[in-house]
Each structure stands twice: as C-alpha cells, then as structure tokens.
C-alpha cells in the first residue's frame, strides 16, 4: 500500500530504504571457499549488478543476502538489521524480496495464488481464521487480492491471473517470479538472472520493467545477470566476482575497462588488445560461454 503512494513521487529516494552493507563475507562448503571476504555497498534506490563468470559465487552471495546460506565470517547489514543473523522468513519480513533464477513457483496454482504468497508476511490469517472463514480473514484476502491484481497488471500478467502457472510460457513465468517478489512490497529486491533464457523482446520488456520498478517504487535492486548488455545499460553500480573474490567494483564504465575483469572474462588479458576485450565484455558475446580457465 505504501509502495503505491511513493509511485506518485517518482524517482525520489525514499527515506525508509537503507543501504545494504556487505562486509568481508566468506562462505565455505567444506574445504571449498565459495566466497572469500567479499564487500560491497548497495546505495539506497540504486540498481546494483553482481556479475562474474560461472562459479564466481554470485548465487551464493544471493543466498547469503536472503538468509538461505549462513556466512562463515563477515556481516550483512540492511539498515539496523543484521541479515547474516536472520532466518529467511524474517528477512522477508523486513522487506527483502527475491525472484529465483530457476523458477520456484507452484505450477498447479494460479498466478493469483502464487502472487498471494508474496503477501504472506503482510497478512495474518492463521489456520483457525482461514478454516472457519472468519470475516477478518475474508476481508484481508480481498484487500490483498486487489493489490496483487494491480501488481500483476503492472507486469502485464493481469489477464492471466486465474491461469495455472504451469501452462504459462517461460517468459511469463519469469515475470510471475518478479511479480511475486514485488507482492511482498519490498524495500530491497533481489533478482537472480531475471532474463536468463529469454528472447530479445522479452529481455527488453523485463529491462523496462526493472527500470519502472526502481523509478516508481524507489527501492534498491540487486541483480545477478549474465547478459552484459543489460547489466551495462541498467546498473548504476557493478560488483564483479571471480572465484569467490571481489575483483572489481564501480560504475559500469569503470568495470568494463578494469584489467582484472577483462582477464576473468577472456581468460588472459596479456595478448589481447584491452580495448577490444572491453568491448567484447560489454557486448556480452563471451559472457555466457566464458572461455578458458573458469568453465
């Protein structure tokens, strides 16, 4: 509800959106260090991309941000909250939402039902109230159903509200993922490869939607993405991971010409003309099928 009122104000930065401070986070799986001492800051209201070759630790970072993995060392702060000490559902409760890369929707349920799950932490009806259909449970469902329909409309899913998710196209399902995350009225939105596997047109629509979400709601967006073109055009800031370490952090323009980044993406920077390499990295030709050492 409060998200909507902010939309009128446009792209102004909302005062209730704190920065995300990731400090020296390390994650280990047995002997393997998936992340080692990674730090970065997501400024309020920005689109922050995390990129890197396969296995760089991007998804691990996301799992730390959403509480699915525990960091062995380091801190993740979101305003006054320590995300690294909270359970996933508690993190959702303070306004951190996540859209999954490999779609994690309930295929047998309709779009509306999937989206209503996003309202879980905003609603209260328990087993008894729901089972007995107490008036407050019914009223609550109706009010939140309207908001869900609104968000579905925003992501062009309005006409599919009562369609089972399982029969939707891949691109539509990806949009339902994003819509479900939005339904939690987040202050921080985590998007895990929102355009992976999409065609050019769907990718453009998604990119447009992400920009609209940021400008209309004023929330921070953290994005893991392989599509370099999209990252470079959307992101305000980019953190580059490789082998679980942060190798670069800066604006898209800075990161693009960073020698470590070029090396990570092209295998070795020595024999290659840096300008060419940077361009290759920017257009994303080599990003998805990273050649050389890391794949």
């Amino acid at each position: 509800m409060d998200g909507m009122s902010a939309s009128a104000a446009g792209a102004e930065i909302r005062s209730d959106i704190p920065s995300v401070d990731v400090e020296n986070v390390s994650v280990r799986f047995g002997a393997i260090k998936a992340l080692s001492e990674v730090s970065f800051t997501v400024e309020p209201g920005t689109i922050h991309a995390i990129i890197g070759p396969n296995g760089a630790g991007k998804s691990t970072m996301f799992n730390v941000l959403s509480g699915v993995y525990k960091a062995a060392e380091g801190q993740v702060r979101f305003g006054d909250s320590r995300l690294d000490q909270m359970r996933p559902y508690q993190i959702a409760g303070i306004g951190v939402a996540r859209a999954f890369q490999n779609i994690a929707l309930s295929g047998g349920q309709t779009v509306a039902e999937n989206l209503m799950l996003g309202r879980h932490h905003l609603t209260k009806a328990g087993f008894i109230a729901a089972g007995l259909r107490l008036p407050r449970a019914t009223r609550e469902g109706k009010i939140h159903g309207e908001r869900v329909a609104e968000i579905a409309e925003f992501l062009e899913l309005g006409d599919k509200l009562h369609t089972p998710v399982g029969v939707l196209s891949y691109g539509d399902q990806k949009r339902v993922e994003v819509a479900r995350a939005l339904c939690t009225e987040p202050r921080l939105l985590l998007l895990d490869e929102p355009v992976a596997g999409m065609n050019a047109e769907e990718t453009d629509r998604m990119a447009e939607a992400i920009l609209e979400i940021r400008s209309a709601l004023g929330i921070s967006v953290v994005l893991v993405e392989h599509d370099m073109g999209m990252v470079m055009s959307l992101a305000d800031r980019v953190t580059v991971l490789d082998f679980g370490r942060r190798i670069a952090d800066g604006t898209p323009a800075e990161v693009q010409v960073h020698p470590e980044v070029i090396r990570a993406y092209l295998g070795s920077g020595d024999e290659i003309n840096p300008a060419e390499a940077a361009e290759a990295a920017a257009t994303g030709h080599h990003s998805s099928e990273t050649p050389g050492t890391h794949s």
Partner: peptide, 25 residues
Amino acid sequence: NLLRSRPGRALQTLRDSEVAASVMG
C-alpha cells in the same frame, strides 16, 4: 477453506520448494 487461503498457499508452496517458501516469508 484452509487450502484456499493464506495458510493453505503457504503449505502448498512449502511442498513445491521449501527455500522459495521461506524466502517469501
């Protein structure tokens, strides 16, 4: 009634993906 409302949706999502359910609150 239970299945068509908030707790029911939570239970069904929990069956399909525990991680997704917990991340959604």
